[in-house]
């Protein structure tokens, strides 16, 4: 233990502790709690039964009251730890409750009925994960449909984004033609035009194309990302032109140069864009909310919002589905966090 502490407190250069070191660790530990705590809490809560969810103060683990089967009763009865009037403790099942007095029986000898003040008893809790929170929404509600819609939108949008953005980036980085700069300026310029600014006319365009209440209406407006074109172009500029020349001497057609030379060599940038695109499209909310009004077309994000917006929120399902929605992003985070962090630090992309 002492060596562990020594290891933790050891500092480079062997100096003593400065107040900033203390502040650093307070900040870091606090950050850990605040950043991870909410998601952990959400996940723990998602396994609780509705009864446990409405309890205050809440427990950390999902507890349910233990129940026993007693001869002569159809339903299992809840089990309580009871302080009997003589001061001894016993485990009794509740038969009936009238006001603050409960009629309780010993499961082993159900004949004797004890009348107990409910303040003198405590439910016998046990940890049980309410997995039905996860299965129910998929089986009874449309969440399986939403999940599929989200996957479809994410995969399609990402594939199309990669293909058309890389083609445009290739044209803008490896050819010289008139109007090139104009196109670049327009592309960079539209970085200034976020969805929030054009959502009304975009909606009318999408409707006019018959894409309202259609997943393609969600996909298509997102695929010509100026950010993607820009990112790929910057990367392709670093591919030596001599390689293109060499390929032309090697009788490669322009299309072959694109997919056999430029695409493989731009793989790192394509990977960055693919990851970002997946996260973007998976997380998209406002635009699907506008385009999709039929419930069978909802993406997970929209579906969650709709269910969470109902008057009588069924938190046990909402929490579980929020966890499901979070899973792909957590996977991306766990496996690609370093990669993305480098991407952001070098490109300022988000």
């Amino acid at each position: 233990m002492a060596t562990v502490w020594q290891f933790i407190t050891r500092r480079r250069g062997g100096e003593g502790w400065h107040w900033t070191d203390v502040a650093t660790w307070v900040w870091l530990i606090g950050g850990l709690l605040i950043m991870f705590g909410p998601a952990v809490w959400l996940t723990l809560s998602s396994f609780k039964s509705p009864a446990a969810l409405s309890k205050f103060p809440p427990t950390i683990l999902p507890y349910v009251t233990q129940e026993v089967r007693v001869e002569g009763f159809d339903k299992p009865l809840p089990l309580y730890e009871v302080t009997l009037p003589d001061g001894t403790m016993a485990r009794l099942a509740e038969k009936r409750r009238v006001g603050i007095i409960a009629q309780m029986i010993d499961p082993k000898s159900p004949e004797t009925v004890h009348k107990i003040n409910i303040n003198d008893r405590k439910p016998v809790d046990m940890v049980e994960f309410a997995t039905s929170n996860y299965t129910e929404p998929f089986l009874q509600f449309d969440f399986l449909r939403y999940l599929w819609n989200s996957v479809f939108v994410t995969v399609m949008a990402t594939i199309i984004t990669l293909v058309i953005n890389s083609m445009a980036a290739f044209a803008l980085s490896k050819y010289k033609f008139r109007g090139q700069n104009l196109i670049l300026i327009i592309i960079v310029g539209t970085l200034m035009v976020p969805l929030g600014v054009i959502m009304v006319p975009l909606y009318s365009v999408v409707s006019a194309l018959g894409l309202f209440n259609n997943l393609w209406g969600v996909i298509l407006p997102t695929v010509a990302t100026p950010t993607g074109v820009f990112l790929l172009r910057q990367y392709m500029l670093t591919i030596p032109d001599e390689l293109i020349d060499a390929a032309r001497m090697d009788k490669a057609s322009e299309w072959q140069i694109y997919w056999r030379i430029v695409l493989p060599l731009a793989a790192p940038a394509l990977a960055v864009l693919a990851i970002f695109s997946v996260v973007w499209r998976w997380n998209d909310f406002l635009w699907p909310l506008i385009v999709l009004s039929r419930s069978s077309l909802y993406t997970l994000q929209v579906g969650l919002n709709v269910y969470a917006g109902q008057l009588n929120v069924q938190w046990q399902y909402i929490l579980a589905m929020t966890v499901v929605t979070m899973i792909p992003v957590i996977l991306v985070f766990v496996f690609l966090q370093k990669f993305i962090a480098r991407g952001i630090a070098t490109t300022g992309l988000k």
Binding site: E242, D245, A246, A247
Partner: peptide, 8 residues
Amino acid sequence: FQSYALYP
């Protein structure tokens, strides 16, 4: 080519 331009 000067840089050889081999396809990496």
